[in-house]
Amino acid sequence: MTVTAPTTAPPAIAIAHLEVRRGGHQVLQDISLTVPRGSITGLLGPSGCGKTTLMRSIVGTQILEKGTVTVLDEEAGSKELRQRVGYVTQAPSIYDDLTVTENVSYFGALYGASAAEVETALAAVGLGSHARHRGNQLSGGQRTRVSLACALVADPELLVLDEPTVGLDPVLRADLWEQFRALAKQGRTLLVSSHVMDEAEHCDELLLMREGRLLAQLSPAELRSDTGESSLENAFLKLIRMGEEL
């Protein structure tokens, strides 16, 4: 599917004054942000800063204490979004005793997807040649790509990907980011989390988090310009220091 959005389209995600508390601990603190349609937005920050909780809030699996989360003009988690939003968690969500095709077909059946749509999803992640391999025969990178195909088979407008490249070697990481860019060129919106700052280079916009707070929303070029640093990792660290000095 190629999704064509008018230039005046509302954002794919709009969050206002979001707060989440778990076990008496404030996990997210007054988060407000927007994610433009047809783009790759990187959600970056150290492990434990609240990225997964924010993503869970967006896909509607997290109880909110305060604030609003609007996704594709609907309340997050509403039934109208079930086929419009794809979510890939950190742990690959596939069955080891099923083949690649059987895994994607199983998830596709939940959305009434045809066999041709299953093949299209597999081709989109470059796994057509592994269609008959069982889940327990795949590498870590291949398992991640099967999870992505399971999300793509619903033909979603928005993909929420929680650290999809963690633990992968540089070649596999580069391959996945090429696939993400191809999906964005089709008009899909991608929100991709990572704790590796060099992955920010692949994103159109960045959401930088620390300790449950949103430090900034800006492009990689703007981050460099605002901090005077050429390295995005150094720029992020300088942004933190600048915030501490305020």
Results as ranks from 00 to 15, higher is better:
residue 146 V to K: 08
residue 163 E to D: 04
residue 66 K to A: 13
residue 135 G to F: 11
residue 48 G to M: 06
residue 139 S to Y: 02
residue 109 A to C: 01
residue 60 G to E: 04
residue 57 S to G: 09
residue 71 V to E: 01
residue 139 S to I: 02
residue 111 Y to T: 11
residue 149 A to I: 08
residue 98 L to S: 08
residue 162 D to T: 09
residue 75 E to L: 13
residue 81 L to S: 12
residue 59 V to G: 03
residue 56 R to W: 04
residue 69 V to W: 07
residue 181 R to E: 13
residue 174 A to K: 14
residue 93 S to D: 15
residue 164 P to G: 02
residue 81 L to D: 10
residue 177 W to R: 03
residue 45 G to S: 03
residue 150 C to K: 11
residue 100 V to H: 12
residue 163 E to Y: 01
residue 48 G to A: 07
residue 61 T to E: 11
residue 144 T to H: 11
residue 58 I to V: 14
residue 57 S to K: 06
residue 123 A to V: 01
residue 119 E to M: 07
residue 126 G to M: 00
residue 72 L to G: 10
residue 151 A to C: 06
residue 40 I to W: 03
residue 45 G to Y: 00
residue 53 T to D: 04
residue 42 G to T: 05
residue 90 Q to T: 09
residue 105 S to P: 00
residue 101 T to M: 08
residue 183 L to Q: 12
residue 125 V to D: 01
residue 54 L to F: 12
residue 115 A to E: 12
residue 138 L to W: 02
residue 180 F to L: 12
residue 64 L to C: 08
residue 44 L to Y: 02
residue 39 S to R: 15
residue 102 E to F: 04
residue 168 L to A: 07
residue 131 A to K: 15
residue 121 A to Q: 07
residue 85 V to P: 05
residue 135 G to V: 07
residue 184 A to Q: 12
residue 65 E to L: 08
residue 103 N to E: 08
residue 124 A to G: 06
residue 154 A to D: 07
residue 54 L to G: 09
residue 170 P to M: 00
residue 113 A to K: 08
residue 69 V to K: 09
residue 172 L to A: 15
residue 51 K to R: 10
residue 147 S to K: 09
residue 133 H to D: 09
residue 123 A to H: 11
residue 118 V to L: 04
residue 81 L to C: 11
residue 88 V to T: 08
residue 117 E to S: 11
residue 137 Q to N: 07
residue 137 Q to E: 15
residue 54 L to I: 12
residue 156 P to V: 13
residue 109 A to N: 10
residue 114 S to Y: 01
residue 67 G to Y: 05
residue 162 D to Q: 10
residue 40 I to V: 14
residue 75 E to G: 05
residue 96 D to Y: 02
residue 87 Y to Q: 01
residue 158 L to H: 00
residue 173 R to I: 10
residue 67 G to E: 05
residue 163 E to I: 04
residue 146 V to H: 04
residue 141 G to H: 02
residue 180 F to M: 12
residue 63 I to K: 12
residue 138 L to E: 02
residue 107 F to T: 11
residue 154 A to I: 10
residue 45 G to I: 07
residue 135 G to E: 10
residue 44 L to V: 15
residue 147 S to R: 08
residue 124 A to S: 14
residue 179 Q to E: 12
residue 60 G to N: 05
residue 99 T to H: 06
